[in-house]
Design a protein around this nucleic acid. Structure first.
Length: 256
DNA sequence: ATGGTAGGAGACCTA
């Protein structure tokens, strides 16, 4: 069972890439972020033609999340319960015996801004909710664009990406560690301590060519799933295609 | 990285 996360940066533009990648990689479950599509425009019939069912929560221009799965999804939750938020950043669903939570974490703009404060508030709300989700669903996978690089191995230059920078500030990394403390594990780090493996490269400055990237797209598995997470990685290939998303898919393999 | 590119809306904002 392969489970993946991909920020497509506009599903309208990237649908051909998504279709090509679904056929090549053949994931069982995929969390998509930044669809930037209102629900009536979601291409669910095109994806059904490839064997994937879709649940989604979108809006015009920004944000937008979806879960694609070969098996049907049930108990769909949109947004963080009890947390008022106009931005469509969260969708969760049950697929088979797995609970899947797909997050498009707030970017935060710059440390100290209102958007940064919103990011920390938002992450705090996610923490409280995931504690409840874990209690109800021990087989939990939390995946998405976390907009946090967990540690120095996950950035191309720790001097640039330091405590004063969004995606790497201490408060953001501490918020991620609080999620780990619930009993969630970065699947990639279960099997690799390699540095310089990234999931996002800036469109500017030849970011991909020079490998100036960050690993901010994560798949977290709960304690109960930890032993079955046999492999995890990032599929860099779609980032090399013509007119790509700035993110590559991150994935985890769960054995039965 | 006080810079640059991409997407989408609509004559800037977000990333």
């Amino acid at each position: 069972m392969k489970i993946a996360s991909w920020n497509v940066n506009s599903l309208n533009v990237r649908l051909p890439h998504l279709e090509q990648w679904l056929q090549a990689f053949a994931p069982d479950i995929v969390g998509i972020q930044e669809t930037k599509l209102e629900d009536h425009r979601f291409p669910d019939s095109a994806l059904a033609g490839l064997g994937y069912r879709s649940v989604f929560a979108g809006q015009k221009t920004y944000n937008g999340v979806a879960i694609l799965s070969r098996e049907s999804a049930t108990d769909v939750q949109i947004g963080i319960p009890g947390f008022e938020d106009e931005q469509k950043r969260v969708i969760a669903a049950t697929v088979g015996d797995l609970r899947i939570v797909n997050l498009y974490v707030v970017n935060g703009q710059d440390v100290g801004t209102d958007k940064y404060a919103y990011k920390l508030r938002w992450l705090d709300a996610v923490h409280g909710w995931l504690a409840q989700e874990l209690a109800a669903h021990p087989n939990l996978v939390v995946l998405g664009d976390f907009n946090i690089a967990p540690d120095e191995r996950d950035v191309y230059d720790p001097k640039v990406w330091n405590d004063g920078h969004i995606l790497t500030s201490t408060a953001e990394r501490d918020a991620l560690k609080r999620l780990y403390a619930l009993g969630l594990h970065d699947a990639y780090r279960l099997h690799s301590d390699e540095a310089g493996i990234f999931s996002w490269w800036d469109y500017r400055m030849g970011g991909l060519r020079r490998n100036l990237g960050l690993r901010i797209d994560l798949t977290l598995v709960s304690d109960a799933l930890r032993a079955s997470a046999s492999a995890s990685g990032i599929d860099r290939e779609p980032r090399t295609w013509d007119r790509p998303s700035d993110h590559a898919p991150a994935w985890v393999q769960l054995d039965a």
